[in-house]
Design a protein around this nucleic acid. Sequence first.
DNA 1: AATGAATGAGAATTCATTCAT
DNA 2: CATGAATGAATTCTCATTCAT
Lengths: 193, 193, 193, 193
Amino acid sequence: MLSAALDLFVERGYAATKLDDIAIKARVSKGTLYLYFDSKEALFKAVIEQGILPMLAEGELLLQQHQGDARSLMQELMLRWWQLMGETHLGGIPKLMISEAGNFPEVATYYYENVILRGRELIRQALNRGVASGEFRALNVESAIDVILAPVLMLVVWRYSLTPCGCGTQDTQAYMSTYLDILMNGLTQKGSE
Amino acid sequence: MLSAALDLFVERGYAATKLDDIAIKARVSKGTLYLYFDSKEALFKAVIEQGILPMLAEGELLLQQHQGDARSLMQELMLRWWQLMGETHLGGIPKLMISEAGNFPEVATYYYENVILRGRELIRQALNRGVASGEFRALNVESAIDVILAPVLMLVVWRYSLTPCGCGTQDTQAYMSTYLDILMNGLTQKGSE
Amino acid sequence: MLSAALDLFVERGYAATKLDDIAIKARVSKGTLYLYFDSKEALFKAVIEQGILPMLAEGELLLQQHQGDARSLMQELMLRWWQLMGETHLGGIPKLMISEAGNFPEVATYYYENVILRGRELIRQALNRGVASGEFRALNVESAIDVILAPVLMLVVWRYSLTPCGCGTQDTQAYMSTYLDILMNGLTQKGSE
Amino acid sequence: MLSAALDLFVERGYAATKLDDIAIKARVSKGTLYLYFDSKEALFKAVIEQGILPMLAEGELLLQQHQGDARSLMQELMLRWWQLMGETHLGGIPKLMISEAGNFPEVATYYYENVILRGRELIRQALNRGVASGEFRALNVESAIDVILAPVLMLVVWRYSLTPCGCGTQDTQAYMSTYLDILMNGLTQKGSE
DNA sequence: AATGAATGAGAATTCATTCAT
DNA sequence: CATGAATGAATTCTCATTCAT
């Protein structure tokens, strides 16, 4: 039910998704939806809130894993996140959030505080550790966090927007590999290795 | 009229934007909209098509400017694009396209072929030139193009989605600066300078 | 169950009363209602039919009590009826009948024949006896019946409609007293006493 | 439109009246209703508020007409009101108000303050004048007002509830005549004429 | 007997579109 | 050219009714 709603919301956007279609996709009646959710808006919020739980859990988990150097930690974070997004349909949530933030500011704030800020914290720690250990160059950490996150975010956003239209087949393996290559090289001290 | 429509489509999405509101914002009557556009969908397409004309023009222009080395060309491209997006409301188009691609595949395709592929071509040329001249390391060019474009795309997408909700104040100057720093460092040969 | 239904039907009207609410008020499940009543309409009919039984019984009883003169009989009738209505929630039935007669003509007819006509018969007998004995003036008996019944009917109707909204606090004691005063004076021969 | 709505609301009650039916009866489309009224509830309020304007106007007019003695003033008031109610469909409003007061307390309050209190004021003045002139007996004026109003109210309520079901054909001429007869006799001093 | 989850027909409301002026 | 009143199909939401447990 939440899963059917997520898929359709991601695919078509909130307003363009009819409750009929969600009901059909979830194999229940329209009335049943209202048994569990007060309104379409409540369903939307539930989709987002339920959807980010795995991300939160994963974030907490990764936050504990401080073993290894900064380089490998950073790579680990990116790859984990990519796996999580790639394996489930939760990857659509960032795209959905981007599309509907204007119509649901409270949900956007909730998402920002519970997902984005946490995600940024992970990157911040990895960056700070790398800078402290000399692995990474000194740089504007706060800006760097956003710059670093952008390509992985874009990857999932793309996947749920233009890619399904046949626009740009994504070789995500190559994309991630190239991304990490450029990123690691970009963060590292010149001649440090 | 197109401008009013663009603003509202970007802010609320296609389906959630009422023709009434566009008419009011454009200071015309609802009937007048139908004098110039056959339907809401036609208006949407016109918004996109008119909106990308400046990008196309700019693209053509930049494509001519081959002077300078690859490093400066790449930086030039990024900054120009950022300026173009930053100064007008056209920056909302990528966000709009991401949101509505699923509902308007033909428009998405049109956008892809006329904007994205051209943009990619610019980056491709800069990359190839840099690799040829030895300024840049050898890398998977096709993947690199997407990786390189992602942070600047994300910048404008963010600006029209979560930022208006008070989520994440963007210091775009610092962002671009850090981005170019990491990128240039990441593309460059180790110890090459 | 019938009592809960009566209260809600009187308070909100038939259509605005949800079976859910009746079920909650009656402390049973919605399904249980269907165990005892075939449909909402059947429940409504049962409410009316059960509700008027006491009135019918009371009517029968009063019909036997011919002792005393016409004046006291008339007063007795009015006060009895007022007590019956005042002490239970059955007073809401006239208001309910007035509201829903248009939607349930058969029930209205049933009510008319079994309650109203009987009630009129009581008044008719009292009037006729009074006229015969010279206590009351000669008058159009059939019209007088309705005129006489109106104030007591209005009293209960008011009590279940506008009074609960804080409109018009009813001093029913004074009302009945004044009513009987005017009525008795009005029916009586001038200078007969 | 308001007239069609009034008729149907009176006939079926608020909840049982479908906007479709109002639209059909008013010979407009459902959408047109929403062009003039925000919601079904707003339409209901408009029906009541527009409906009582004539009553208010008539009330104001009558309030000026102090010529004649109390007896004739009282009779005049009753007959006028009866004419007003009888000639238009506005007579349904009291029945409607009684039925829906519980669901629209604000409207009920509005009605009470603007119609009922004014109507009571008219009767009060007539009563007081009659008592002062010795035409009427001394009595509890406030209660008497309600007692006096009840039969004429009941007359219109009846007309829009049970009468349409074939329950009790009303000879309103005789009813009013008998009512005024009993009332005048009841109010008058014994042996005063 | 009793429950309450599930249903779907039906009602209120919205909004793109039309057209007479 | 421009308008805005009118439309009705489409959509959200409600609630009487059913039925497996």
